[in-house]
């Protein structure tokens, strides 16, 4: 028997296929199609790749912002529940999980057996989210990876003190005008994001181990600075973008059991 989790996010659709024992496949596409179409396409692709007939899929759970558009899913679950489940599956020692994607930043607290017991999200402001990182990159005429690689070389940090993303952008511009090095400005941007992430995580009371997932987890400098904020290392999955879809797949499996 096979189980599928589908995560329909802001810009991309991710899917994970599991059987009763292990993770078999994962697949993600960046798509401008509407969520239902993209979800179906990804689902078909993963079946094809795994060479599995559709009727052997015992259950499908969808998650993410567009979860309700996935008409062929048996059940729908919120991101918080799926990410918590996925993170716990990957790291049974996880007690706190932070997910930072384009749309926002949220923290989840796990209780016994990985049960979700509390969660928090960033305020409406984009500070501390992937969107802020993208906006900052535009100001510096870099791509998101460029910020990471420049920040890595920084000898100092030009601090961005404002927590409002709009103000922070103007602060970055004035740091440029002041003649601070691009490296230190990039480090400042990463530090600002790491701090906002810490703020969201703290709202659920941090307990070790901490799992970090979502797009921002691929930025090495942010991760490093986030660890410095916490004062201990965090666990980052190999594929931090797939945790929600994985959680959905595990929940799909639990449904049948």
């Amino acid at each position: 028997m096979y189980f599928v989790g589908i995560d329909v996010g802001l810009y991309s659709v991710k899917s994970v296929l599991v059987d009763e024992e292990r993770i078999l496949l994962s697949r993600g596409v960046v798509s401008e199609e509407e969520g239902s179409k993209a979800a179906y396409r990804v689902f078909q692709e993963i079946l094809k790749e795994g060479n599995i007939p559709e009727d052997e899929i015992a259950s499908i759970v969808s998650t993410g912002m567009g979860r309700k558009e996935v008409a062929f899913a048996n059940e729908k679950r919120t991101d918080q529940v799926c990410i918590a489940r996925g993170a716990y599956y990957l790291f049974p020692s996880a007690r706190t999980v932070l997910d930072t994607g384009a749309g926002g930043c949220r923290a989840m607290k796990l209780g016994d057996h990985g049960k979700l017991i509390d969660f928090s999200s960033n305020s409406k402001c984009a500070g501390g989210t992937g969107s802020f990182l993208e906006a900052a990159a535009r100001v510096l005429q870099l791509d998101v990876e460029g910020i990471d690689s420049l920040a890595l070389k920084a000898g100092s940090v030009s601090r961005v003190s404002s927590y409002c993303a709009v103000f922070a952008e103007s602060e970055i511009i004035s740091n440029i005008h002041r003649g601070f090095s691009k490296e230190s400005i990039c480090a400042g941007i990463c530090e600002s994001i790491a701090q906002r992430m810490h703020d969201v995580l703290r709202r659920v009371r941090i307990e070790k181990e901490v799992v970090l997932c979502g797009g921002v987890a691929t930025n090495g400098t942010v991760v490093k600075m986030f660890e410095a904020e916490l004062d201990f290392p965090v666990l980052v999955p190999k594929d931090p973008l797939m945790v929600g879809a994985l959680g959905a797949a595990i929940i799909a499996r639990d449904l049948i059991r």
């Binding site: 919120t78 918080q80 969660f119």
Partner: peptide, 8 residues
């Protein structure tokens, strides 16, 4: 958020 809370 209410949905997540109730699911939780």
């Amino acid at each position: 958020r209410i949905e997540a809370f109730i699911e939780m």
